[in-house]
Design a protein around this nucleic acid. Structure first.
Length: 293
DNA sequence: CACTTGACCTGTCCGC
DNA sequence: TGCGGACAGGTCAAGT
């Protein structure tokens, strides 16, 4: 599920809710959701205090006072939902948004000393959580290969174009989704940014004029920022740390809007398949690239 | 090497 | 209503 704006939305919630809380216990039901829990949790998790919560690409990092970090990838259907302690009173707002937890998608529960809890729910079980010495976090395979953060100030047009052009023969959509080219873009924001720049997703990067790549760079940053501003996108599962749905899809131009008119020209939006993913386009604004002769 | 295709899982929706 | 198949926001390993 979550792409950069969704993961950042969760981080913004957690960073308000978790720091200072001390872990009292941990429970997990599915070994792949937290593979090293049995070995390390008792020593480096229980009794540790949360220092802060960071994000890199689509990954969350909960830093602990034990000098270990919980590194979390939510993949398609992961959620991190916080349920407060007695200070929230009975029937605190999260419960009314997500219902009783744990439910059947709950994979891991962190219990804090003050009675609050953090639930890692993941219907499809693709997500994972790992306890890693904080100093080794940058050394995990994913972080060694992942590309730059698109919302960093130094992510310039030149840097963007240089990185995209490394992939000569791929469709531009496949390149945007490639986390080693740049971090954090997934299916929603790839489609939205390509519509903004009027580029057909199947176009080979080498065939796109630089002027259009400038528009794509601008459009990508714009849609990612709007995604964060609207609290992410809830297509089915996404929830913030407080259990709220995201509002971005109300503002989406093409994603999940097949058979509706393009907001720019009125042509009916089409859903096709590019790079193995469902892909939404305006067939007029985003003309199909010419076939090779 | 560069790129594409399954596999990992559960749940839901759609057509027969 | 039941049942099979396609599909769902992401990455890997294995294939061409």
């Amino acid at each position: 599920m979550p792409e950069l704006p969704e993961v950042e939305t969760i981080r913004l919630g957690l960073v308000k809710l978790l720091p200072g809380r001390v872990v009292a216990d941990v429970w997990h039901d599915w070994h792949k959701s937290f593979p090293n829990a049995p070995a390390d949790a008792a020593r480096f998790l229980v009794g540790a205090k949360v220092k802060t919560v960071r994000r890199r690409a689509k990954v969350l990092i909960i830093e602990l006072s034990s000098n270990y970090s919980l590194v979390i990838h939510l993949k398609m259907t992961g959620q991190l939902v916080f349920m407060g302690d007695k200070r929230f009173g009975a029937g605190h707002p999260t419960k009314s948004l997500v219902g009783e937890l744990p439910d059947k998608s709950t994979r891991v529960i962190l219990d804090f000393k003050d009675g609050s809890k953090l639930f890692f729910n993941d219907q499809r079980k693709f997500g994972w959580m790992r306890l890693i010495p904080s100093i080794e976090v940058p050394e995990i395979d994913f972080f060694k290969t992942v590309g730059p953060e698109p919302l960093d100030d130094d992510f310039t047009v030149d840097k963007f174009v240089e990185r995209l052009r490394r992939r000569k023969n791929s469709s531009v959509k496949a390149v945007l989704l490639d986390q080693t080219v740049l971090a954090g873009v997934g299916n929603i924001y790839a489609d939205e940014s390509l519509w903004t720049a009027k580029i057909h997703p199947a176009t080979v990067v080498d065939k796109i004029p630089s002027t259009k790549l400038v528009l794509l760079h601008d459009g990508l940053i714009k849609v990612l920022k709007l995604g964060i501003e609207k609290g992410g996108s809830t297509d089915r599962n996404f929830r913030s740390a407080e259990g709220k749905k995201g509002n971005y899809l109300t503002f989406a131009q093409v994603f999940r809007r097949e058979n509706q008119p393009c907001p720019r020209c009125g042509t009916i939006i089409d859903k096709i398949r590019v790079a193995g993913r469902g892909t939404h386009i305006c067939p007029f604004c985003q003309r199909e690239p010419k076939a090779k002769p």
